[in-house]
Design a protein around this nucleic acid. Structure first.
Length: 223
DNA sequence: GCGACAG
DNA sequence: ATCTTGTCGC
């Protein structure tokens, strides 16, 4: 049974654009992001990561059952990259190869967990929001470091968190996924709300700092 | 002008 | 992210 994701054709855009053009695209598409939870049954979660070597980028995407977290499917794609890394424009560098990898899956996950921010972004349109919107799949941003926003200190015990705020609005949460280690920056990607996203991330971490999907994808993408 | 800056 | 040197814990 093949069930490939369908990219939203009406909002598809070119990727080989100038940084200034990319910013305009982000501002336009940010208005399409839904920050609300939807009645949904999550039976599988997807995760992805990208590794680089010289001019090549390799994306790995995995699909795991939820909540068991057994591997169901995976895909790896390697191709050259042109767009440079620019803080705030990560999706224009990693988006193309990630979409190709997802397109090779035999089943579409019910939820996508990204290695990067969702709306915890200067224009509220990080890579988790961008790809989640194009594929119309609920998504969560899970970044290891901060891009923007501020927060108060949090306890060192697992599960504690504090909200990440920027320009007067809550854009995410800083979550202690494992006691006494650096917290994770969790934010809404698309079609989910923050509290639900936090719960999903916690149940995907199994005692580690990062979600199992991210850990496995990183392993598969390694050169 | 200066500091900050996902991967 | 990747590279690289040194240190620490299991």
């Amino acid at each position: 049974m093949i069930n490939r994701p369908k990219i939203l054709k009406h909002i598809l855009h070119p990727w080989n654009v100038s940084p200034g053009n990319a910013i305009e695209i982000q501002k336009r598409l940010a208005g399409h992001i839904s920050r609300k939870a939807e009645p949904m049954c999550i039976r599988s979660v997807g995760g992805m990561d990208v590794c680089y070597r010289e001019d090549s980028a390799r994306a790995a995407v995995v699909v795991m059952s939820y909540p068991e977290l057994d591997l169901l499917d995976s895909a790896v794609v390697t191709e050259s990259v042109d767009f440079p890394y620019v803080p705030g424009l990560l999706s224009f560098r990693e988006g193309p190869v990630i979409l190709k990898a997802i397109d090779r899956l035999n089943s579409v996950p019910d939820l996508l967990i990204f290695d990067g921010h969702g709306i915890a972004h200067p224009r509220r349109f990080g890579i988790a929001s961008h790809i989640g919107l194009l594929l119309n799949i609920p998504s969560i941003g899970c970044a290891k470091t901060r891009l923007c926003g501020h927060h108060s200190d949090l306890n060192r015990k697992q599960g504690s968190y504090s909200f990440l705020a920027d320009q007067g609005e809550t854009i995410g949460a800083v979550l202690r996924t494992r006691a006494d280690v650096k917290p994770l920056y969790v934010s809404i990607g698309h079609r989910i709300d923050l509290s639900v996203g936090i719960r999903f991330v916690l149940t995907c971490c199994r005692g580690y700092r990062l979600p199992e999907t991210t850990r496995l994808a990183d392993r598969l993408a390694r050169f």
